[in-house]
């Protein structure tokens, strides 16, 4: 029972670990704790999926066409 208690995570802690594992690997205890938490917590499973979606969107950020002619003229006049 003591072991279960050590491994038990709150949602706040679990979601923090999800973000941290992106920066550096989690310890064995943290990994097992997170795995156990995600098995029983649907909201945190949704958090993991949504967090990954946000990461992907942050990397992509497609941009619609824009007109840069004015800026090009401004830059070229600055370079002379």
């Amino acid at each position: 029972m003591a072991l279960i208690k050590t491994l038990e995570l709150s949602c706040q802690k679990a979601t923090a670990l999800v973000e941290r594992r992106d920066l550096k690997p989690l310890s064995g205890i943290e990994r097992v704790g997170l795995w156990m938490h995600l098995r029983i917590c649907g909201a945190c499973r949704a958090y993991v999926r949504q967090s990954e979606t946000i990461d992907r969107l942050l990397e992509e950020r497609p941009q619609a066409g824009i007109d840069s002619t004015a800026l090009e003229h401004r830059i070229i006049s600055e370079l002379r």
Binding site: Q12, G42, A43, A46, R49, Q50, I54, L57, R61, P62
Partner: peptide
């Protein structure tokens, strides 16, 4: 005690993110 407050929790079923197209998600982001 560190559990989701219901008003702020991710919705799992349906997952609003999964049911939204990329363009709309991108605008929201």
């Amino acid at each position: 005690n560190g559990h989701w407050d219901l008003a702020h929790a991710p919705t799992n079923d349906p997952d609003a993110f999964r049911d939204t197209d990329n363009e709309r998600l991108d605008r929201a982001l």
